[in-house]
Design a protein around this nucleic acid. Structure first.
Length: 556
RNA sequence: AGUCCGAUGGUGUAAUGGUAGCACUACAGAUUUUGGUUCUGUCUGUCUAGGUUCGAAUCCUGGUCGGACUACCA
């Protein structure tokens, strides 16, 4: 039997509810506001809501929380749906929008007015803020708080009809201006915004606030478990208050702590700033923690899902190490990525005893992790490109690469011995000379020799070039949002390094956008979906390989 | 400083009054035609002071520390 998997606190609650018979089936929802692109934090919420529904045989809706027309746009709606599907989830039935409920919500508001629980307030935003009180001081009642029901009905209807300018009036719930929870000090339900809505157009000029839309929308959809992040915890009494006073289906809200990732920021406001101020090329810049950025970077959807699953959820503050995400990315890619050879920082290697003009094609394994991966032909001849860092004039003890007198195997080819090298006037190595052992051919090696090192290479005459983009973490500090001052001062100015023309083996020239490879010994690379052109792929480094040699060197 | 939430190795998360476990990281070793992968092993933890109990990470009380709330945003 498989070992018992422990439950998170929400699964505990749900299993209890199901056991008690409180619900026959659960119904969750993912409720993004279409005002930005989804990021890894949303992925967590998506995996949670859709995952819970799947696990317990329930349903999960997708509902766009589009109550603020000035920040929202269909561009975001489209990207959000795309991202959810890419992650491998599908929502129940039609795509839902809070804006579909505007009529119902309006009637709910009228109902509360009739019950004497809501009133129209002519105060300005400043006046309302000033009379709100503070965490230690109670607030003061608005002078408009005791208008008659008839007057409120009349005034609210006029608000809807557009008789007022923005900000002239609001509708507020009549609760308690001295309540210790500031959210319950007569919260705003409706405000006037003469703005074009991406779906309802100009039909409305009053829009419900989050608190007068979210719980009711959940209720309308018969959501059993409305899961949101911790900062909404104070809203829960209000969520319950509206539902109770309206007498509608009692959805319940549960909160969990949002996930934070080290070396990046997660708030939409900050991400928007990075985009607008051109610190990145867009929402889908491969350095962004957005789903679309990660997709473009080459992170497999399954890796993101696995990451969310293993990190889990709880109610305490957290910063998850980026290394965990990268582990899952490598875990996936190791199984699927085709191995190829590319030389990022080239130096010429000449095999002096290999006849000039001779060439051969060697069989090379596509993926040692995949039995059915097959092989491909890779051209080989006297002149090759190898990695500059694979040669040292005066190699240290445990350097298992090239240096005068040292031997290595050329991956999939022959064992060679370094016999010399040439330098230019500045002391830079310009070419390396070696002799090969014909009997050591890969797969037909009769020499019995054991060499410590194997290096990758690209045949010089047939090499193609491609642009490679190396990415590093976007920020220099673990938790930019928690540091002093502007988070942008912690941006890593070396987060992108462009190599305009690296040498790659010929097969790579035909790589298609979205394809993922492992460049042997250099990392995983994905073909950029935006900037690649036919025959001219651009490769994004998804993640490096683990490098225990680099680690070893750091110790000295 | 009012109200609310939280505190378990470096990180994240389990243990629901009864052996503090898992994953990542780190470290050591084995295997390896990628210094990759794989395999084996090791290190490191219950914020604090009391109390209840045969027994407390868990329950109670006080303290400490961290976070959220005072938008016509969500």
């Amino acid at each position: 039997m498989s070992e018992e998997k422990s439950l998170n606190f929400l699964e505990d609650i749900i299993e209890q509810h199901l056991a008690e018979g409180r619900y026959k089936h659960i119904h969750t929802r993912f409720p993004p506001e279409p005002n930005g692109y989804l990021h890894i934090g949303h992925a967590s919420s998506i995996c949670l809501n859709f995952g819970l529904a799947k696990k317990y045989g329930g349903k999960c809706n997708l509902r766009f929380d589009d109550t603020n027309p000035v920040t929202e746009d269909t561009e975001y709606v489209d990207s959000i749906m795309n991202d959810i599907r890419w992650l491998g989830f599908e929502w129940e039935g039609e795509t839902l929008y809070t804006s579909d409920y505007f009529d119902t919500l309006y009637n709910f508001a009228v109902d509360l007015i009739k019950k004497g629980l809501a009133y129209v307030d002519d105060s300005t935003a400043e006046e309302i803020a000033a009379t709100k009180g503070s965490t230690t001081e109670p607030g003061k009642n608005s002078p408009y708080r005791n208008r008659s029901i008839e007057e409120n009905l009349q005034l609210f209807a006029e608000m809807k009809e557009g008789k007022n300018k923005d900000g002239e009036k609001v509708l507020r719930a009549k609760i308690d201006m001295a309540h210790p929870n500031l959210l319950l000090r007569d919260p705003l339900m409706y405000r006037i915004k003469h703005a074009h809505h991406h779906r309802t157009g100009d039909k409305w000029c009053i829009y419900p606030m989050y608190d007068f839309a979210h719980g009711q929308s959940d209720s309308i959809e018969n959501i059993t478990h409305s899961i949101c992040t911790l900062e909404f915890i104070h809203h829960r009494p209000l969520y319950d208050w509206f539902i109770e006073k309206l007498g509608i289906y009692p959805s319940k809200q549960y909160e969990f702590a949002r996930r934070n990732l080290s070396y990046t920021v997660m708030s939409k406001r900050k991400l928007l700033q990075l985009v607008n101020e051109k610190h990145v090329t867009g929402w889908d810049d491969p350095r962004m923690p957005t789903i679309s950025g990660m997709r473009r970077r080459g992170y497999p959807a399954q890796a993101i899902v696995n990451f969310c699953d293993t990190v889990g959820i709880a109610k305490r503050e957290n910063v998850v190490d980026l290394g965990v995400l990268e582990f899952h990315v490598r875990e996936q890619l190791n199984k699927t990525a085709l191995r190829m050879m590319a030389v990022l920082d080239p130096v010429k290697l000449i095999i002096t005893n290999y006849p000039e003009g001779q060439a051969e094609e060697l069989d090379m394994e596509n993926n040692p992790e995949d039995e059915n991966g097959g092989t491909r032909k890779v051209p080989f001849s006297r002149e090759l490109w190898i990695e500059r860092e694979d040669f040292m004039e005066e190699p240290p003890k445990k350097f298992f690469r090239l240096g005068p007198g040292l031997t290595v195997r050329l991956k999939g080819a022959y064992i060679i011995e370094c016999t010399g090298f040439a330098k230019d006037n500045n002391g830079n190595v310009t070419e390396i000379h070696a002799t090969y052992i014909p009997e050591s051919k890969s797969g037909h090696d009769t020499t019995g020799l054991k060499v410590k090192g194997t290096i990758h290479w690209v045949n010089a005459p047939t090499a193609r070039t491609a642009e490679v983009r190396l990415y590093d973490r976007l920020f220099k500090v673990e938790n930019p949002a928690a540091e002093e001052g502007d988070f942008k001062t912690y941006i890593n100015e070396h987060s992108l390094e462009v190599l305009p023309a690296v040498y790659v083996e010929p097969a790579l020239a035909d790589a298609q956008p979205g394809q993922e490879f492992q460049f042997l010994r250099k990392g995983y690379f994905a073909v950029d979906s935006k900037d690649s052109t036919p025959g001219k792929p651009v490769f994004n480094r998804t993640v490096t390989l683990k490098d225990s040699w680099a680690k070893e060197q750091k110790k000295d």
